[in-house]
Design a protein around this nucleic acid. Structure first.
Length: 116
DNA sequence: AGAATGACGCTGA
DNA sequence: TTCAGCGCCATTC
């Protein structure tokens, strides 16, 4: 992918994530899949990594398929901020980032984001 | 150009 | 249920 193309991908990721209702979640893999990019879960992570703050993108609502916050030193604290934001939205997150993914998964209407 | 690096995910032990 | 091992693929080095 060229840089410009990846930027376009980033924008599509942001547009979709902005549609996630408060208190609901989506996994990296689902975001990629809903955008028609099966297998690019890691790139969704990269896209969110490029966000600058403040942002209107509710990035905290994207977690990994294991039902946990993806912790990493490279996030320089945004992982813990994510836990705090989710708690504020009413989602119980344990000390080690585990959360009841099944209960809060967002199932969007099939035609809600075709424009993306 | 080639290797290393992840905010990932699935499978098998 | 955890966890190592792989496959994955754009970005970085």
């Amino acid at each position: 992918m060229t840089t410009t193309a990846s930027r376009a991908f980033d924008q599509r990721v942001y547009a979709l994530v902005r549609l996630i209702p408060p208190g609901q979640l989506l996994t990296y893999g689902q975001v990629a899949e809903l955008l028609g990019c099966w297998g690019r879960a890691r790139q969704v992570g990269w896209a969110l990594r490029r966000l600058t703050f403040p942002t209107d993108v509710p990035w905290q609502r994207v977690v990994n398929a294991a039902g946990r916050i993806s912790f990493s030193p490279s996030r320089e604290g945004s992982d813990w901020i994510q836990r705090q934001l989710l708690l504020e939205e009413g989602i119980p997150v344990s000390e080690d980032g585990r959360l009841p993914l099944r209960r809060y998964l967002w199932t969007p209407a099939p035609d809600a984001f075709v424009e993306l």
